[in-house]
């Protein structure tokens, strides 16, 4: 399905660049999901898509709709705020669940609850 909005050339260039870089960033992030070795390294990979990738694609959408309707359309900012606020929450929960599971299985590469005793004052 080859179809596109009817934008003037300058807007088309901006939207195209934002879209391509955003999609490439997201793809690089998920490539890390394939390629990194351990779970704790892989958790870092999707944050590429949720920060820069999402921001660029949403910016492209904002520019496109604002030019098409010739008024500022910024409701994509809601998705942006939502994604940036919720991804840390899910990743933190997931990391804590993983570390809890690894500890209960006695994995050696995971820090235990109290490795660094604070010296008595």
């Amino acid at each position: 399905m080859i179809q596109g909005p009817d934008l003037p050339t300058w807007a088309a260039v901006i939207v195209g660049l934002l879209l391509l870089t955003g999609a490439t960033t997201t793809l690089i992030g998920t490539l890390g999901l394939l390629q990194l070795k351990s779970f704790y390294e892989r958790v870092h990979a999707p944050t590429l898509g949720t920060t820069l990738g999402a921001a660029l694609i949403l910016a492209a959408s904002m520019v496109s709709f604002s030019v098409l309707q010739s008024r500022p359309v910024i409701h994509e900012i809601l998705i942006g705020v939502f994604v940036t606020l919720t991804t840390p929450v899910t990743l933190m929960l997931l990391a804590r669940a993983a570390i809890y599971r690894d500890r209960s299985e006695g994995a050696s590469r995971v820090p235990t609850d109290g490795p660094r005793r604070t010296p008595p004052a």
Partner: peptide
């Protein structure tokens, strides 16, 4: 601080020890 550290690619907040005031962070 937790949201900042986790949202930044490459660092991940794992746990906060409220008694000893120590944060466990994973760094890529």
């Amino acid at each position: 601080l937790a949201v900042i550290i986790t949202a930044t690619p490459g660092t991940l907040w794992v746990q906060h020890d409220a008694r000893r005031h120590v944060i466990l962070i994973h760094v890529l």
